[in-house]
């Protein structure tokens, strides 16, 4: 059973433990500026919304890539960027309608969430269970993915 990140913003306190865990896992430093998950803060509303790639079915990034540098990991379901193949054209960054692929100027490649190979550190670090890693079915993923559908270039007859 594939698992996925389930994000419940109502529980988020904005502590950024997830961002630190992510950057430490992927970059070796505690650096929210380099995190693949980002907590957006809505000061006026008093709300914090963690946000990252949903590994959407449409995989806009993967399909947009001209050189097959984004591949789906069959075990985790994550779309992974193959650094060695990525040429840094950034097409995936404009193709992902969720804004979750980002260009990293210092490496000339793109970065995105890869579920840490199946053990997402953000979820492990989250103190409030605002981010959990659960069976794909049990998540609010359908809801999240329905936004993806809104971006579809096609309507299907059936």
């Amino acid at each position: 059973m594939l698992r996925s990140l389930n994000i419940n913003p109502d529980k988020c306190t904005g502590c950024l433990q997830c961002e630190m865990a992510c950057s430490f896992e992927n970059e070796g430093v505690f650096n929210p500026a380099k995190s693949r998950i980002k907590v957006f803060s809505f000061h006026h509303e008093g709300r914090f919304v963690p946000y990252t790639c949903t590994q959407c079915d449409e995989a806009w990034c993967l399909h947009a890539c001209p050189v097959e540098a984004i591949k789906m990991n069959r075990e985790t379901g994550a779309m992974e960027v193959l650094d060695a193949v990525c040429v840094g054209c950034k097409v995936c960054t404009i193709a992902c309608p969720f804004g979750t692929v980002n260009y990293n100027q210092s490496t000339g490649k793109v970065i995105k969430c890869d579920l840490c190979g199946g053990d997402p550190q953000c979820a492990a670090a989250c103190p409030t269970e605002a981010i959990t890693y659960v069976d794909a079915d049990a998540t609010g993923l359908d809801k999240m993915r329905s936004w993806a559908a809104k971006t579809d270039n096609a309507t299907h007859a059936n």
């Binding site: 306190t13 904005g14 502590c15 950024l16 433990q17 630190m20 008093g46 914090f48 103190p127």
Partner: peptide, 14 residues
């Protein structure tokens, strides 16, 4: 409205 954390805080007393 809610509680809020400072940077890195897992208590979140704010």
């Amino acid at each position: 409205t809610t509680n809020a954390a400072c940077f890195g805080c897992t208590i979140a007393c704010g």
